[in-house]
Amino acid sequence: MKQVFILRGLPGSGKTNYAHNLADDLVAGDSSQYVICSTDDYFVGAEGYQFDKHKLPEYHNLNLARFIKALSEGIPLVIADNTNIKKWEFIAYIEAAHALGYQVKEVIVGEIKDKAMQHLYAQRNTHNVALRTIAKMAYQFEW
């Protein structure tokens, strides 16, 4: 069975760890059997992670293209690892997956509304997303 998982959650909630653990559980970490598509990957260069908000639309489009390519190649497990706060942000992923015969599961990682967890996420996220931004994202989260 071909599967897609759409991960959703605040920065620092553990989406990337969840994605890798899921791949380990479902395909024993066999890298030929899965692809994790994260827009964050495009911000990593020789100097490490360098976020540039002006590049975000371009990188989201590149990530969607990588996702669709993995689907078209028939990769058994494809995971979209982005915050996906608003539903419009991941609807194209769902539509592409359904069009190519994949079963889709949406997974919310972490606690969205819990203020204590938001503080934890602000401390542990690797992209220096401030608590104020995380709280705003939690407020805007669409269920």
Score class of each variant (00 low, 15 high):
55 K>E: 10
51 F>G: 06
103 Q>D: 12
61 N>K: 14
62 L>Y: 03
92 A>R: 12
43 F>D: 05
47 E>S: 15
67 F>S: 02
56 L>K: 11
77 L>T: 06
73 E>T: 08
90 F>D: 03
49 Y>S: 11
56 L>S: 05
80 A>L: 12
63 N>S: 08
50 Q>E: 13
63 N>C: 11
34 Y>D: 00
85 I>D: 01
103 Q>N: 11
38 S>A: 15
101 G>C: 09
79 I>R: 01
105 K>I: 07
38 S>C: 13
31 S>K: 14
38 S>W: 01
112 I>G: 01
47 E>Y: 09
34 Y>H: 07
23 A>M: 03
109 V>F: 06
32 S>N: 15
95 E>D: 15
75 I>S: 04
81 D>M: 07
54 H>C: 03
83 T>Y: 07
53 K>A: 12
98 H>P: 01
85 I>L: 05
60 H>E: 11
49 Y>L: 13
53 K>R: 13
83 T>A: 13
50 Q>A: 13
49 Y>C: 08
84 N>F: 12
96 A>Q: 08
109 V>C: 05
58 E>N: 07
80 A>C: 14
39 T>M: 05
75 I>L: 08
115 K>C: 03
80 A>K: 13
111 E>N: 08
105 K>C: 07
58 E>G: 05
100 L>V: 05
54 H>S: 12
114 D>S: 04
98 H>V: 15
106 E>W: 01
105 K>Q: 14
100 L>D: 06
23 A>H: 01
49 Y>T: 10
49 Y>P: 00
94 I>K: 11
53 K>L: 07
83 T>N: 14
48 G>R: 02
52 D>E: 09
54 H>L: 09
106 E>V: 15
110 G>E: 02
60 H>A: 13
109 V>T: 07
113 K>Y: 07
94 I>V: 15
75 I>D: 01
54 H>A: 14
113 K>T: 11
88 W>T: 13
69 K>L: 14
21 N>C: 10
84 N>M: 13
52 D>V: 02
106 E>A: 07
84 N>E: 10
48 G>M: 06
47 E>C: 09
99 A>H: 12
26 L>E: 02
56 L>M: 12
112 I>W: 00
72 S>V: 08
48 G>L: 03
105 K>P: 00
54 H>M: 09
68 I>C: 10
79 I>H: 01
51 F>M: 05
22 L>E: 01
47 E>F: 09
114 D>Q: 06
83 T>M: 09
109 V>E: 03
50 Q>H: 14
90 F>E: 02
104 V>L: 02
114 D>V: 06
61 N>R: 14
104 V>P: 02
54 H>V: 02
21 N>H: 12
95 E>T: 14
32 S>C: 10
55 K>P: 02
92 A>D: 15
96 A>G: 08
52 D>Y: 00
22 L>N: 00
96 A>S: 13
111 E>R: 04
46 A>H: 13
112 I>R: 01
67 F>R: 03
64 L>Q: 12
